[in-house]
Design a protein around this nucleic acid. Structure first.
Lengths: 347, 347
DNA sequence: CTGAAAGCGCTTACAG
DNA sequence: CTGAAAGCGCTTACAG
């Protein structure tokens, strides 16, 4: 039996009061020393530090922030669709890097694109007294956050802008990136370009679809509704959706896939049917190993790290008391030509 | 100007005391209702709930857990090497899934494999009163956690076992997986098999190297130290290390790469030199799009989701008071043959 | 510069 | 079944 584990319930963590007793000073003095020691005689500082060392005292930030004037917990909450999606993994890292410089920790949760789950997470974060919330929102209406914000919660949206609430946001230039992608395929001579993307009630998907449509329209190409597909579930279903699209009677010669997991499935499907040197493809958002696949997968890359960093910076500005009008930062995309997007069309 | 943001400092969140006043009951009764309402007259429950609704009262878990007997914060801390590494993204998701079923939230941080950063994170989590810690540790000596555990912190190690502290752990069968990989390459006729892996002071790297060595020894193949390389930095440097290894005077005919990011770099280097159909490769840990690359990348796959889930389950058992001896769960690997590992050797 | 006292928002014996 | 009181571990006016 592990003695440490067995004693879990018995041993108590020393308190400031006990440190004070050992150091022979008052509770107030210990608090002052623990919080930086401003205006405390060096001799007392030393005595308190000795007692802290001796007892193994650890500051209780929970009790501290409950009593402190600013009420800050040095903790923020982050809501993503799925922490195991590499895109959000990088956004997460961007947030963490900025938060870390401020000594702030991040609570993270996955909504799985379910509104109820998103609200539950927001509630749970609030109950734990987070100073702010960064959210890649999956709901149609973010008004549920109005009351929280009024109660002092700082807010920043990332990847998708807020709806029915005025708040800071950092988004990728989705429509612009989609235009770049489709223009690129048109320039290679394609006219029948398929679109694969999330349901359009996801903001990013709607924007990318809009960019696709606008570009076709500006080239006087009538939209063929049969070429626009929305896989219900990512991964397997996107694979089948791609396969079905390519097996249709009048298939596209090129594809624009509007999300990283969908792109991976589409690439897989095209390769499975041996059409990787015939069907052109441009994906929105970069995918791993895209340069090693033959042909290389051309993408309109996002900058998820920058998204996360910018969102955290906007959030901390609010936490610091900035109360100017809401800001929206649009992060540009970058076309990365690797081969699949440069396959010539029939035109 | 956004009115909500401007009023951040002015509006206060209603307290239980205010709810009590509005409902015309005592603070105690409000507390009882908020915590489930056991033993409170239905009529009072209703009145309290009405006041809660009216005022928009939100429970303050921070204050609650400070006063509660169990002291539980319903929050755990998780330390990874890097949250943007897809492997840890999946481990994270496994942890979250189990925690979510219990209403527990996760604080997450990246250590970047730096011992100081790991200790800082552990301190920061402790200061915020987490109920337990799941850690993929990067330090040589985890004794720094002894005092925390004695003070009641539940502990579970994931991906790497604890050192100098007796605690629960969930690890992949690293040596066994490495043996499988190297046996597979030997069976294909290879005798000169290179090893690419993290520095051996990382536990997983040492274990995989051990599996590699044991397998060679069991086949009476003398180790060639020139074939064992430890890229200092992942990514770019692993690429160059691979290129240098293959460009040597007596290069290997096969590679065993001991980590996902290193495998990606190795695949990239092999392809860049057009040797993807000559140099066999088996990677430890699966990599994205491995099935689409030509030839497909053979790997010994881990199950990161299972690692995360199991670690969370061990942790919650401790949080629930289980005080049996420490347990170690070893998660098996799975060989996934895709082509690169089946390229024949000269033997 | 230091300490005694009040109180952050809540839970929990205790008495009625 | 309900309420008044004490107190979780800390910070912060306030007085000395």
């Amino acid at each position: 039996m592990s003695p440490g584990q067995a004693e879990r319930q018995r041993v108590r963590r020393p308190t400031m009061r006990e440190v004070a007793a050992v150091a022979g000073v008052s509770l107030s003095t210990v608090s002052r020393v623990v919080n930086g020691g401003a205006g405390v005689k060096p001799e007392l500082v030393e005595r308190v530090q000795g007692a802290v060392e001796l007892l193994g005292y650890r500051h209780n930030l929970t009790a501290s922030s409950l009593r402190r004037a600013d009420r800050l917990s040095a903790t923020i909450g982050v809501i993503f669709e799925d922490v195991s999606n590499p895109f959000f993994g990088s956004v997460h890292r961007g947030v963490e890097d900025v938060a870390r410089d401020r000594g702030v920790l991040t609570l993270v949760g996955s909504s799985d694109e379910q509104p109820d789950r998103e609200r539950e997470l927001a509630d749970a974060f609030m109950a734990r007294g987070v100073d702010g919330l960064i959210v890649a929102s999956a709901v149609r209406d973010n008004a549920y956050l109005l009351r929280e914000r009024a109660a002092g919660l700082a807010l920043a949206f990332v990847d998708r802008p807020p709806r029915f609430i005025d708040a800071d946001a950092v988004v990728t230039d989705n429509a612009g990136g989609a235009r770049t992608a489709v223009e690129h395929l048109l320039a290679a001579g394609h006219r029948r370009i398929g679109f694969l993307g999330d349901r359009p009630d996801v903001f990013t998907a709607a924007e990318r679809l809009r960019g696709y449509r606008e570009t076709l329209a500006s080239h006087d190409i009538a939209e063929d509704v049969d070429l626009v597909r929305h896989p219900q579930f990512r991964g397997v279903d996107a694979y089948e959706t791609t396969a079905a699209l390519l097996a249709g009677k009048n298939p596209p010669t090129a594809l624009f896939s509007g999300q990283n997991l969908i792109s991976m499935a589409a690439v897989r499907a095209i390769h499975a049917h041996g059409q990787q040197h015939e069907i052109a493809l441009v994906g929105f958002d970069d995918i791993p190993m895209a340069d090693v696949i033959q042909p290389g997968v051309t993408v309109v890359a996002q900058d998820p790290l920058a998204l996360g960093r910018a969102a955290a910076e906007l959030l901390f500005a609010r936490i610091d008391g900035h109360d100017g009008p809401s800001r929206e930062i649009v992060v540009p995309t970058r076309l990365v030509e690797r081969g699949s997007g440069e396959l010539p069309g029939p035109g």
